[in-house]
């Protein structure tokens, strides 16, 4: 019951906490043309661990915003306007903090949990792996 496969069906978090699970889910998302949502989710986790005193952290915040938030891609289209505005203002004022992407990550995670994750568990990629 605690095999990786059993864990993957418990939650999206369990799937993404397992290297094989995260890799297989990304293959699935690439085919669905929405791998950016997963990359953004991991980027938010990585950003939260970064040292705010390090100059690179502001550059990463700008990179996340430019690559995922302000574009018309799968992430930019799914985020609420207020969430995008909040991040944009923080980046423009160079007032970054570790939690600045939390709300955006939650919105994208909820979207993945309700859509891509459910579809993945019915997908041929997953069933073949099982």
């Amino acid at each position: 019951p605690d095999s990786p496969l059993a864990r993957w069906t418990k939650s999206l978090h369990s799937l993404l906490g397992d290297q094989d699970g995260a890799r297989l889910f990304r293959v699935f998302l690439e085919r669905e043309r929405c791998a950016d949502a997963l990359d953004f989710w991991f980027a938010c986790n990585g950003f939260r661990q970064m040292d705010l005193k390090d100059g690179k952290t502001l550059r990463v915040a700008k990179a996340i915003y430019k690559r995922y938030v302000e574009t018309d891609g799968v992430v930019g289209r799914r985020l609420k306007p207020a969430t995008k505005t909040f991040i944009r203002d923080n980046v423009k004022r160079q007032q970054i903090d570790s939690a600045m992407f939390d709300q955006a990550q939650t919105e994208i995670q909820t979207s993945m949990e309700e859509n891509a994750y459910q579809t993945f568990l019915q997908s041929d990629i997953y069933l073949e792996y099982v």
């Binding site: 993404l16 906490g17 397992d18 290297q19 699970g21 995260a22 990359d39 991991f42 980027a43 938010c44 986790n45 990585g46 950003f47 661990q49 970064m50 690179k56 550059r59 990463v60 700008k62 990179a63 996340i64 430019k66 690559r67």
Partner: peptide, 20 residues
């Protein structure tokens, strides 16, 4: 100096699950 793409890639991979 790391490019923004390099920094972003490092940020993403730093958060991915490691080999068991």
């Amino acid at each position: 100096l790391d490019s923004e793409d390099d920094l972003l890639l490092k940020c993403i991979t730093s958060a991915m699950p490691k080999q068991k």
